[in-house]
Design a protein around this nucleic acid. Sequence first.
DNA 1: GAATCCATCACCCGAAACAGTGATTCTTAC
DNA 2: GTAAGAATCACTGTTTCGGGTGATGGATTC
Lengths: 206, 206
Amino acid sequence: MIRVFIVDDHPVVIEGIHSLLQNETDIEWAGHAMNASSCLGYFVNNTADVVLMDISMPGTEGVELCKIMSEKYPGIFILGLSTFNQGLYIKKMIENGASGYILKNSSKEELLKAIHTVNNGGIFFSGEAGEALAEYQKSSKTHPELSPREKEILELIAEGYTNPQIAEKIFLSPFTIDSHRKNLLAKLGVKNTASLIRLAVERKLI
Amino acid sequence: MIRVFIVDDHPVVIEGIHSLLQNETDIEWAGHAMNASSCLGYFVNNTADVVLMDISMPGTEGVELCKIMSEKYPGIFILGLSTFNQGLYIKKMIENGASGYILKNSSKEELLKAIHTVNNGGIFFSGEAGEALAEYQKSSKTHPELSPREKEILELIAEGYTNPQIAEKIFLSPFTIDSHRKNLLAKLGVKNTASLIRLAVERKLI
DNA sequence: GAATCCATCACCCGAAACAGTGATTCTTAC
DNA sequence: GTAAGAATCACTGTTTCGGGTGATGGATTC
């Protein structure tokens, strides 16, 4: 018997999963919480085998809760749950102790498979989530990190300052700003300011 | 008796709402569809009073389906349903015939109130959605709309194309692209490409 | 102590962007 | 029927960007 607990701030999702699981003979509904603190409260006197956890709760609650839970109760398996397919979040959840990740548009079969897999100590990703993670890993490998100075200049560029203005602002030679700017383009593999800013915003570098 | 039909690509949401509504004496579950075409298929031989419609289905399916449904079956009230609180989408749904809009993290009470309100011909917004819409209306007043051509060129700029390249791509004179580009800068009140792209991404214009 | 990376500065040059101005069609709205 | 705005094209400047290339000092690392 697998005891399943869910943490999600959407009543509809809680109800939906409850309903999907209620006829499963080997799954027991342990309960639900709608925020991080009531989840932690529940586990003071109770336990479960698998916790389904919405990662897109207000703030970074999902990711933080995942970390706390996995450290405090290493025997409980956590399954990330989200509407979206964002490599960055998926990676963070895994880094913080989640054993898997499924999308909310998964079928009942996929959900059951995920619960069983993580309950047996396995790792489960819904297909698309796995792809998103792979894509993310790839992009963070192929594109090296930016130095602090480069980030600073990138932000100033994004705010609309020109090279001479940036130079004046941070007391450097315009030539230096120009060099950094060219390095930014090279490192990120783009060829003009438009794509640079687009990429920076998409990757949340600024 | 209000017959409720739901269109959503998330099985969990369908189950959740079904479950939330199943003990309501004045609500009858008409059924569900997981995409636009099966929804349209259903209404060939059946009907309903209120349709709950996820607007964030793949592509612009949600918005388009809303338009088709409201034109074809003006007697059916549509209630937009979404995880997010995006003024632009809310506005589009309303423009295309929806009678209200609720977030998926709404409570059971709010959901019931919304269904009853739209079924009586009223307009319903969950609080946050109303705020988001107001915010959007406000920002679209202070910031004028872009013409289709301008949007097209803005996107191409964001993809890193230069004026000459864009000109070649869409068979126009480089002078024309230059004019549009200047108009974009003027309309959005920025003075170079960097701030233009930043603003465009932030306002989700691209 | 050699290698590597960061940060700084420098110059040339062509291409692109930006400012200013003005003009012509065509539709849409009042 | 005219006013307004969208879309198109045109020319002239000045400024900025971006490619190429190279140099120096300092910190880190192995």
